[in-house]
Simulated scan of single mutants.
Amino acid sequence: MHMVTAVLAPDRDRFRTDQDPIELATHLPGVARADTPVRHTRIVVGPCRIGIVVFVQSEGRGAAFTAARVACERLLQRAETLTGWSLVSLVVSVR
């Protein structure tokens, strides 16, 4: 099991000021799905940042990084309320 920390932030050119971070976070539990190696998530929402800690069941750190990136990118593509947000950081913790 690997812990991956992701940060989502708004793209200043496309960010809508009426977006409520708590509303945005309602889509984030969808990161952990049965068809991915993502097993568990923790979410911290701030005014211009959403932090996600993702626990990934994988053979190595590279596979954990890829699985978390794919899950976050899929989330950003599918959640209309996350329009204007992007993945700005993704780090696999070293054990």
Rank of each mutant, 00 (worst) to 15 (best):
M3E: 13
R78C: 05
R14I: 04
F55M: 12
G84T: 00
S89P: 07
R39Y: 05
T81I: 10
H40Y: 14
F15K: 00
A9Q: 13
R33F: 01
V54I: 15
R61G: 14
D20S: 07
A64T: 10
V53C: 11
S86K: 09
C48R: 10
T17I: 00
R49T: 06
T26V: 07
A9S: 14
D20R: 01
V4N: 07
T36M: 03
Q77P: 01
I52V: 15
V94T: 12
T36Q: 06
A79I: 04
R78E: 13
P29I: 04
R74E: 14
L90S: 10
F15A: 00
L87I: 06
H2Q: 10
D13K: 00
R33N: 02
D35S: 07
A67N: 06
T41W: 02
R39H: 09
A6E: 09
I43Q: 06
D20E: 06
D11P: 07
R12D: 00
H40E: 15
D35V: 01
L82A: 08
W85F: 13
R69A: 14
P21R: 01
S86V: 03
D35M: 04
A79E: 08
G60N: 15
T66R: 15
P21Q: 05
A71L: 02
H40S: 14
A6L: 13
R33Q: 12
